[in-house]
Design a protein around this nucleic acid. Structure first.
Lengths: 153, 153
DNA sequence: CAAGATTGAGGCCTCAATCTTT
DNA sequence: AAAGATTGAGGCCTCAATCTTG
């Protein structure tokens, strides 16, 4: 069964290489066109999708980094004026990131660039059948994937 | 065409989330079972695949990091005894990383864990048709992907 | 001067510890 | 004591500059 195993390993390798290449191009394009790191764009998107404000903890999960990582990411974006922090009404422990007008504007400006980039470097190469296959397969993988904070059984 | 666009964007998002989740689990498993970072394992594999030795520059490309990044990665692995540096015969500028016996042994020990991890968290979720689809699609994406050092036309 | 590799500086991330509120 | 968020310490990466050899 060596050939089948090899094919499966190949997919994994292709997956890693493709990810590295794609993140690299998309980051460069966004940076050159709008001076925006991909991580910042991601925060803007997630905030916008949530109506403009989001708890720090929830946001950290959405953008796939640790809580402390997000604290500093939001620090930098706050300094750049794209978001601000606000207290959350019911809970004095909490803090939420809020999209500023400038942040919303940066997102509107950058989105076309980034969406075109995703289309050009990624989606364009997938036929409808592959879109279906990858969506389902990757969805299953994510669903089955043990969350980092889960107990080890 | 909103639904088709959404489906294509969904794939991209799934791709990012799956990558983050997979690298995270696989890294944790390798670390806990053998105290080996994924990046180290990757270097060991690439060296082994090349017969045990590799120019620093080539190796950097294979493991998807910068030259300077690889310099320090090899520094750490050398300190741990898994690789050593050697001059390259024909070119006094060059340097190559060479797998040590200990490195080869570490790879042999860790490989079963990691291969099982890839199978369990990734390959297992793909049916043969999806393996084919993903391999071809990702292969095309990588082939079309502009290399970082290419001119911007 | 170009190529191969390393070093210096600085950015961003993670883990563990800490502070505040529940 | 646990939850939410931040801070301190330290690791690893990248870019630009540097050193050596071609």
């Amino acid at each position: 069964v060596t050939t089948r195993d090899d094919a499966r390993l190949d997919v994994w390798r292709h997956f890693l290489v493709a990810h590295a290449a794609l993140v690299d191009v998309l980051e460069r394009e966004l940076q050159e066109a709008h001076g925006l790191p991909l991580a910042w764009y991601d925060v803007l998107v997630q905030l916008n999708a949530a109506g403009g404000r989001r708890r720090m903890g929830d946001l950290a999960e959405s953008v796939l980094i640790s809580r402390s990582g997000l604290t500093r990411l939001v620090d930098r974006m706050e300094e750049a004026g794209l978001v601000r922090r606000a207290r959350v009404p019911g809970d004095k422990r909490g803090s939420e990131a809020v999209l500023t007008a400038e942040g919303r504007s940066a997102l509107r400006t950058a989105a076309p660039t980034h969406l075109r980039g995703i289309e050009e470097h990624f989606s364009r190469h997938l036929n409808p059948q592959e879109v279906r296959a990858m969506r389902e397969a990757l969805g299953r993988i994510v669903a089955a994937s043990p969350r980092a904070d889960d107990a080890d059984v």
